[in-house]
Simulated scan of single mutants.
Amino acid sequence: MAIQWFPGHMNSTRNAIRERMKAGLDVVIELLDARLPGSSANPLLAQLTEGKPNLKLLNKQDLADPARTAQWLAHYNALPETRAIGLDASVPAPARALMSACRELAPLRGGMAKPLRVLICGIPNVGKSTLINTLMGKRATKTGDEPGITKVEQKLVLENDFYLFDTPGMLWPRISVPESGYKLAASGAIGRNAFNEEEVALELLDYLRQHYAGQVEARYKLDDVAGLGDEELLEAIGRKRGAMLGGGRVNLQKAAEIVVYEYRQSLLGRITLETPEEFARWQAAGAAIEAQRKDKRKKSRVEPDAEPD
Protein backbone atom coordinates (compact mmCIF):
# COMPACT_ATOMS: atom_id res chain seq x y z
CA MET A 1 0.00 0.00 0.00
CA ALA A 2 1.35 3.43 -0.97
CA ILE A 3 0.58 6.07 1.67
CA GLN A 4 -0.04 9.55 0.24
CA TRP A 5 -1.46 12.65 1.90
CA PHE A 6 -1.19 16.19 0.49
CA PRO A 7 -4.17 18.41 1.46
CA GLY A 8 -4.77 21.70 -0.33
CA HIS A 9 -3.26 23.88 2.39
CA MET A 10 0.09 22.14 1.87
CA ASN A 11 0.10 23.40 -1.72
CA SER A 12 -0.39 26.90 -0.29
CA THR A 13 2.61 26.37 1.97
CA ARG A 14 4.70 25.28 -1.01
CA ASN A 15 3.78 28.48 -2.83
CA ALA A 16 4.57 30.54 0.28
CA ILE A 17 8.07 29.05 0.45
CA ARG A 18 8.65 29.94 -3.21
CA GLU A 19 7.64 33.53 -2.48
CA ARG A 20 9.89 33.68 0.57
CA MET A 21 12.82 32.49 -1.53
CA LYS A 22 12.16 35.31 -4.01
CA ALA A 23 11.99 37.87 -1.19
CA GLY A 24 15.35 36.79 0.20
CA LEU A 25 16.40 34.08 2.61
CA ASP A 26 19.67 33.26 4.39
CA VAL A 27 19.12 29.99 6.29
CA VAL A 28 16.51 27.22 6.21
CA ILE A 29 15.64 25.40 9.42
CA GLU A 30 14.01 22.01 8.96
CA LEU A 31 12.46 20.49 12.05
CA LEU A 32 12.74 16.69 11.95
CA ASP A 33 11.32 13.93 14.12
CA ALA A 34 14.33 12.41 15.90
CA ARG A 35 12.58 9.02 15.78
CA LEU A 36 12.63 9.07 11.94
CA PRO A 37 15.14 11.73 10.87
CA GLY A 38 15.41 10.59 7.26
CA SER A 39 11.75 9.88 6.61
CA SER A 40 10.68 13.20 8.13
CA ALA A 41 13.08 15.21 5.92
CA ASN A 42 11.04 16.78 3.13
CA PRO A 43 12.60 16.28 -0.35
CA LEU A 44 10.28 18.95 -1.75
CA LEU A 45 11.71 21.47 0.73
CA ALA A 46 15.23 20.56 -0.41
CA GLN A 47 14.21 21.34 -4.01
CA LEU A 48 12.50 24.61 -3.11
CA THR A 49 15.41 25.92 -1.01
CA GLU A 50 18.33 24.48 -2.97
CA GLY A 51 21.60 26.32 -2.36
CA LYS A 52 20.66 27.74 1.05
CA PRO A 53 22.49 26.79 4.27
CA ASN A 54 20.44 24.32 6.26
CA LEU A 55 19.94 23.68 9.97
CA LYS A 56 18.44 20.30 10.85
CA LEU A 57 16.70 20.30 14.24
CA LEU A 58 16.13 16.74 15.49
CA ASN A 59 13.14 17.38 17.70
CA LYS A 60 11.76 14.97 20.32
CA GLN A 61 15.22 13.53 20.89
CA ASP A 62 14.10 12.53 24.38
CA LEU A 63 11.77 9.97 22.72
CA ALA A 64 14.41 8.60 20.34
CA ASP A 65 17.17 6.03 20.72
CA PRO A 66 20.15 8.16 21.88
CA ALA A 67 22.75 6.03 20.08
CA ARG A 68 20.88 6.41 16.80
CA THR A 69 20.36 10.13 17.37
CA ALA A 70 24.13 10.48 17.60
CA GLN A 71 24.46 8.64 14.28
CA TRP A 72 21.97 10.95 12.59
CA LEU A 73 23.56 14.11 13.98
CA ALA A 74 26.94 12.95 12.66
CA HIS A 75 25.36 12.13 9.29
CA TYR A 76 23.79 15.57 8.84
CA ASN A 77 26.75 17.49 10.25
CA ALA A 78 28.97 15.85 7.63
CA LEU A 79 26.89 17.40 4.80
CA PRO A 80 28.06 20.68 3.21
CA GLU A 81 26.51 23.90 4.54
CA THR A 82 24.50 21.92 7.08
CA ARG A 83 24.35 21.93 10.85
CA ALA A 84 22.35 19.54 13.02
CA ILE A 85 21.40 19.79 16.67
CA GLY A 86 19.00 17.86 18.91
CA LEU A 87 16.09 19.40 20.77
CA ASP A 88 13.53 18.26 23.31
CA ALA A 89 11.38 19.71 26.06
CA SER A 90 14.31 19.62 28.49
CA VAL A 91 16.55 21.95 26.44
CA PRO A 92 16.54 25.14 28.57
CA ALA A 93 17.35 27.69 25.88
CA PRO A 94 16.22 26.50 22.43
CA ALA A 95 16.25 30.04 21.01
CA ARG A 96 19.90 30.53 21.91
CA ALA A 97 20.93 27.20 20.37
CA LEU A 98 18.87 27.85 17.24
CA MET A 99 20.16 31.38 16.69
CA SER A 100 23.79 30.45 17.35
CA ALA A 101 23.68 27.66 14.76
CA CYS A 102 22.02 29.93 12.17
CA ARG A 103 24.59 32.68 12.67
CA GLU A 104 27.37 30.14 12.10
CA LEU A 105 25.73 29.12 8.83
CA ALA A 106 25.42 32.74 7.61
CA PRO A 107 28.36 34.61 9.18
CA LEU A 108 28.12 37.53 6.75
CA ARG A 109 24.58 38.38 7.82
CA GLY A 110 23.68 40.23 11.01
CA GLY A 111 23.13 43.75 12.29
CA MET A 112 20.24 46.06 11.46
CA ALA A 113 21.58 46.73 7.95
CA LYS A 114 21.65 43.02 7.08
CA PRO A 115 19.26 41.17 9.39
CA LEU A 116 19.39 37.39 9.28
CA ARG A 117 16.34 35.99 7.47
CA VAL A 118 15.49 32.42 8.46
CA LEU A 119 12.70 30.10 7.29
CA ILE A 120 11.52 27.31 9.61
CA CYS A 121 9.65 24.33 8.15
CA GLY A 122 8.66 20.82 9.12
CA ILE A 123 6.21 18.03 8.47
CA PRO A 124 2.89 18.00 10.38
CA ASN A 125 2.96 16.95 14.02
CA VAL A 126 6.74 17.23 14.34
CA GLY A 127 6.49 19.68 17.25
CA LYS A 128 7.08 22.93 15.38
CA SER A 129 4.13 24.73 16.93
CA THR A 130 5.35 23.83 20.42
CA LEU A 131 8.82 25.12 19.58
CA ILE A 132 7.44 28.34 18.10
CA ASN A 133 5.26 28.93 21.17
CA THR A 134 8.32 28.40 23.37
CA LEU A 135 10.31 30.89 21.32
CA MET A 136 7.50 33.45 21.37
CA GLY A 137 6.88 33.04 25.08
CA LYS A 138 10.49 33.49 26.11
CA ARG A 139 12.25 35.53 23.45
CA ALA A 140 10.19 36.20 20.37
CA THR A 141 7.71 38.91 19.45
CA LYS A 142 5.01 38.43 16.89
CA THR A 143 5.22 41.31 14.43
CA GLY A 144 2.32 40.45 12.19
CA ASP A 145 1.60 38.41 9.09
CA GLU A 146 3.60 38.86 5.95
CA PRO A 147 1.74 40.79 3.20
CA GLY A 148 0.27 38.68 0.45
CA ILE A 149 0.60 35.33 2.19
CA THR A 150 -1.19 36.04 5.44
CA LYS A 151 -2.80 32.63 5.71
CA VAL A 152 0.38 30.60 5.57
CA GLU A 153 3.29 32.56 7.02
CA GLN A 154 4.09 34.33 10.28
CA LYS A 155 7.05 36.58 10.98
CA LEU A 156 8.75 36.42 14.38
CA VAL A 157 11.59 38.59 15.65
CA LEU A 158 13.92 36.66 17.95
CA GLU A 159 16.44 39.50 18.10
CA ASN A 160 16.56 42.91 16.41
CA ASP A 161 18.55 41.44 13.54
CA PHE A 162 17.09 37.93 13.46
CA TYR A 163 13.83 37.36 11.57
CA LEU A 164 12.17 33.95 11.68
CA PHE A 165 9.48 33.09 9.12
CA ASP A 166 7.20 30.24 10.21
CA THR A 167 5.16 28.15 7.76
CA PRO A 168 2.51 25.47 8.40
CA GLY A 169 3.51 21.82 8.35
CA MET A 170 3.98 20.36 4.89
CA LEU A 171 4.49 16.90 3.43
CA TRP A 172 5.29 16.27 -0.24
CA PRO A 173 2.89 15.20 -3.01
CA ARG A 174 4.26 11.70 -3.60
CA ILE A 175 6.00 9.58 -0.95
CA SER A 176 8.17 7.34 -3.12
CA VAL A 177 9.83 5.47 -0.23
CA PRO A 178 7.21 2.97 1.10
CA GLU A 179 9.03 2.52 4.43
CA SER A 180 8.86 6.28 5.01
CA GLY A 181 5.13 6.30 4.37
CA TYR A 182 4.52 3.71 7.07
CA LYS A 183 6.79 5.43 9.56
CA LEU A 184 5.23 8.83 8.93
CA ALA A 185 1.79 7.30 9.45
CA ALA A 186 2.90 5.61 12.68
CA SER A 187 4.33 8.90 13.99
CA GLY A 188 1.10 10.84 13.36
CA ALA A 189 2.38 13.01 10.50
CA ILE A 190 -0.24 11.68 8.08
CA GLY A 191 -4.00 12.03 8.48
CA ARG A 192 -5.75 8.93 9.77
CA ASN A 193 -8.04 8.69 6.75
CA ALA A 194 -5.01 8.19 4.47
CA PHE A 195 -3.86 4.81 5.76
CA ASN A 196 -4.96 1.45 7.10
CA GLU A 197 -4.09 1.36 10.79
CA GLU A 198 -3.75 -2.40 10.92
CA GLU A 199 -1.28 -2.42 8.03
CA VAL A 200 0.76 0.37 9.62
CA ALA A 201 0.82 -1.48 12.95
CA LEU A 202 2.07 -4.66 11.24
CA GLU A 203 4.88 -2.76 9.51
CA LEU A 204 5.77 -1.08 12.80
CA LEU A 205 5.84 -4.38 14.67
CA ASP A 206 7.96 -5.96 11.95
CA TYR A 207 10.65 -3.34 12.59
CA LEU A 208 10.30 -3.39 16.38
CA ARG A 209 10.60 -7.15 16.74
CA GLN A 210 13.85 -7.04 14.75
CA HIS A 211 15.45 -4.09 16.53
CA TYR A 212 13.62 -3.50 19.82
CA ALA A 213 12.29 -6.93 20.76
CA GLY A 214 13.20 -6.52 24.43
CA GLN A 215 11.18 -3.33 24.77
CA VAL A 216 8.14 -4.91 23.13
CA GLU A 217 8.42 -7.95 25.42
CA ALA A 218 8.66 -5.73 28.50
CA ARG A 219 5.70 -3.56 27.50
CA TYR A 220 3.32 -6.38 26.61
CA LYS A 221 4.73 -9.10 28.88
CA LEU A 222 5.49 -11.46 26.00
CA ASP A 223 8.27 -13.97 25.35
CA ASP A 224 10.35 -14.57 22.22
CA VAL A 225 8.90 -11.63 20.26
CA ALA A 226 11.64 -11.95 17.63
CA GLY A 227 10.43 -15.47 16.83
CA LEU A 228 6.86 -14.42 16.08
CA GLY A 229 5.44 -13.34 12.75
CA ASP A 230 3.96 -9.85 12.48
CA GLU A 231 0.32 -10.99 12.60
CA GLU A 232 1.10 -13.44 15.39
CA LEU A 233 2.63 -10.63 17.39
CA LEU A 234 -0.32 -8.32 16.79
CA GLU A 235 -2.71 -11.09 17.88
CA ALA A 236 -0.65 -11.77 21.01
CA ILE A 237 -0.75 -8.09 21.95
CA GLY A 238 -4.50 -8.00 21.34
CA ARG A 239 -5.02 -10.97 23.66
CA LYS A 240 -2.86 -9.41 26.36
CA ARG A 241 -4.83 -6.17 26.17
CA GLY A 242 -8.28 -7.75 25.97
CA ALA A 243 -8.99 -6.61 22.41
CA MET A 244 -11.29 -9.53 21.71
CA LEU A 245 -14.31 -10.34 19.58
CA GLY A 246 -16.78 -13.18 19.98
CA GLY A 247 -15.57 -16.74 19.68
CA GLY A 248 -12.14 -15.97 21.07
CA ARG A 249 -11.10 -13.98 18.01
CA VAL A 250 -8.76 -11.00 18.36
CA ASN A 251 -10.00 -7.58 17.30
CA LEU A 252 -7.02 -6.75 15.10
CA GLN A 253 -8.20 -3.20 14.44
CA LYS A 254 -8.31 -2.47 18.17
CA ALA A 255 -4.96 -4.17 18.72
CA ALA A 256 -3.46 -2.05 15.93
CA GLU A 257 -4.82 1.13 17.49
CA ILE A 258 -3.20 0.16 20.80
CA VAL A 259 0.20 -0.46 19.18
CA VAL A 260 0.23 2.78 17.18
CA TYR A 261 -1.02 4.86 20.12
CA GLU A 262 1.55 3.44 22.53
CA TYR A 263 4.37 3.97 20.07
CA ARG A 264 3.34 7.61 19.58
CA GLN A 265 3.19 8.13 23.33
CA SER A 266 6.66 6.56 23.71
CA LEU A 267 5.25 3.95 26.08
CA LEU A 268 7.50 1.30 24.51
CA GLY A 269 10.61 3.29 25.40
CA ARG A 270 13.07 5.32 23.35
CA ILE A 271 12.88 4.08 19.76
CA THR A 272 14.25 5.28 16.43
CA LEU A 273 12.78 3.61 13.35
CA GLU A 274 15.73 4.01 10.97
CA THR A 275 19.48 4.44 10.75
CA PRO A 276 21.21 6.57 8.08
CA GLU A 277 22.34 3.41 6.29
CA GLU A 278 18.86 1.85 6.30
CA PHE A 279 17.24 5.02 5.02
CA ALA A 280 19.82 5.33 2.22
CA ARG A 281 18.93 1.81 1.04
CA TRP A 282 15.20 2.48 1.17
CA GLN A 283 15.67 5.78 -0.64
CA ALA A 284 17.71 4.18 -3.42
CA ALA A 285 15.10 1.44 -3.88
CA GLY A 286 12.30 4.01 -3.90
CA ALA A 287 14.12 6.11 -6.50
CA ALA A 288 14.50 3.08 -8.75
CA ILE A 289 10.80 2.26 -8.48
CA GLU A 290 9.87 5.89 -9.14
CA ALA A 291 12.10 5.97 -12.23
CA GLN A 292 10.41 2.83 -13.55
CA ARG A 293 6.98 4.36 -12.91
CA LYS A 294 7.88 7.54 -14.81
CA ASP A 295 9.38 5.56 -17.67
CA LYS A 296 6.23 3.44 -17.93
CA ARG A 297 4.02 6.54 -18.00
CA LYS A 298 6.23 8.13 -20.63
CA LYS A 299 6.01 5.07 -22.85
CA SER A 300 2.24 4.85 -22.43
CA ARG A 301 1.90 8.40 -23.80
CA VAL A 302 3.77 7.59 -27.00
CA GLU A 303 1.30 7.04 -29.80
CA PRO A 304 1.64 3.72 -31.65
CA ASP A 305 3.22 3.84 -35.07
CA ALA A 306 0.78 4.50 -37.84
CA GLU A 307 -0.14 1.44 -39.85
CA PRO A 308 1.09 1.45 -43.49
CA ASP A 309 -1.43 2.35 -46.20
Rank of each mutant, 00 (worst) to 15 (best):
L98C: 06
M99F: 03
A106T: 04
L108F: 14
M112E: 13
A113S: 11
K114H: 14
P115L: 04
L116G: 05
L119P: 00
I120M: 11
C121E: 10
G122L: 01
I123L: 15
P124I: 10
P124W: 04
S129N: 05
S129M: 13
L131A: 06
L131F: 02
N133R: 09
N133P: 07
N133H: 13
K138Q: 15
R139M: 08
A140R: 13
A140K: 10
T141P: 01
K142F: 13
T143K: 15
D145F: 10
P147K: 05
G148I: 06
T150Y: 07
V152W: 09
E153M: 12
K155L: 15
V157D: 00
V157N: 04
V157T: 07
E159S: 15
F162R: 09
Y163G: 05
Y163I: 02
L164T: 01
D166C: 07
D166A: 02
P168H: 06
P168V: 06
G169D: 02
W172A: 03
P173E: 06
P173K: 11
S176H: 15
P178Y: 14
P178W: 15
S180R: 02
S180V: 07
G181D: 01
Y182G: 03
K183L: 11
L184Y: 09
A185P: 09
A186V: 13
G188P: 04
A189W: 02
A189I: 11
I190D: 03
I190Q: 03
I190E: 00
G191Q: 15
R192M: 06
N193Q: 12
F195L: 08
N196S: 10
N196C: 09
E197F: 08
E198F: 05
E199I: 13
V200L: 05
V200R: 05
E203L: 00
D206Q: 12
D206I: 04
D206F: 04
L208R: 04
A213L: 10
A213S: 15
V216M: 14
E217H: 09
A218S: 13
R219N: 11
R219D: 10
K221Y: 06
D223P: 00
E232A: 13
L233W: 14
L234G: 09
L234C: 09
L234N: 07
E235P: 08
E235C: 15
E235V: 11
A236F: 11
